Amino acid sequence: MRQVELQLTAEDRVKVEEIRSKGVHHAREVNRAHVLWCLDRGIPEAQILEVLGVGRTALWRTRAAYLQGGVERAVFDLARSGRPRRYGAEAEARVMALANSEPPQGRQRWTLLELERAARQEFGLGSVSRETVRRILKRTGSGTAAAG
């Protein structure tokens, strides 16, 4: 197996050593730092795979990422966008205002079912689900609604 040479810069060696020895990092980040450290020292790939217990693809991807973008790109995962929130702060505030308002007649407090029904009457919240209402209440620390 032909090994591609990889030489870290002095600055990158310091970064890799810090990741390997200091702070709190995810295991995969530490493994990637170990891979870079080994490649920099010319350790054969077969030995790296055996000792670190990483796959050949992980080793190749770590090397390629370093060559493309340095230590930051090789060690740390890229941020992922994820699905955008469906209801923003304004919608959450309206649900909270409902939860803190007077409960329906004949009730001492709101239930999730009643909050969901009331929220659906609000403009822009027509498709809000009971689970979404529950998560909003939980996230904002309001326990005014009873389960149900």
Rank of each mutant, 00 (worst) to 15 (best):
R63T: 08
R63C: 01
A64L: 07
A64K: 10
A65I: 13
A65N: 13
Y66C: 01
Y66K: 05
L67G: 03
Q68L: 15
Q68F: 13
G69D: 00
G69V: 08
V71E: 04
V71L: 01
V71D: 07
E72C: 10
E72T: 06
R73P: 05
R73S: 05
A74H: 00
V75R: 03
V75K: 09
D77P: 10
D77T: 05
D77L: 09
L78K: 09
L78D: 14
A79Y: 02
R80E: 12
S81Q: 05
S81A: 12
G82R: 00
G82L: 01
G82P: 00
R83D: 08
R83P: 12
R83Y: 07
R83I: 07
P84R: 04
R85C: 05
R86W: 04
R86F: 14
R86Y: 15
Y87N: 01
G88F: 02
G88P: 09
A89F: 13
A89W: 14
A89K: 13
A89H: 15
E90Y: 00
E92D: 14
E92R: 01
R94F: 04
R94S: 06
R94K: 03
V95A: 06
V95K: 09
V95C: 01
M96V: 12
M96L: 15
L98M: 05
A99Y: 15
A99P: 12
N100V: 03
S101V: 04
S101G: 15
S101L: 06
E102R: 15
E102P: 04
E102I: 03
P104G: 07
P104V: 05
Q105G: 01
G106I: 02
G106M: 02
G106D: 02
G106S: 07
R107E: 05
Q108W: 01
Q108K: 03
Q108E: 10
Q108A: 03
R109F: 06
W110V: 03
W110Y: 07
T111S: 04
T111K: 07
L112K: 10
L112N: 09
L112I: 07
L113T: 15
L113Q: 13
L113R: 15
L113C: 15
L113Y: 14
E114C: 11
E114Q: 12
E114T: 11
E116Q: 14
E116W: 13
E116Y: 11
R117Q: 09
R117W: 08
A118Q: 11
A119T: 03
A119K: 03
R120Q: 14
Q121C: 09
Q121P: 08
Q121Y: 06
E122C: 09
F123H: 08
G124H: 05
G124N: 10
G126F: 01
S127A: 11
S127G: 09
V128H: 08
V128L: 12
S129C: 05
S129M: 03
R130Q: 12
R130N: 08
R130K: 13
E131I: 11
E131L: 15
E131V: 14
E131H: 13
E131A: 14
T132K: 01
V133E: 06
V133S: 00
V133R: 02
R134G: 05
R134C: 06
I136V: 07
I136R: 07
L137T: 11
K138Y: 13
T140K: 02
T140N: 13
T140E: 14
G141T: 04
S142M: 09
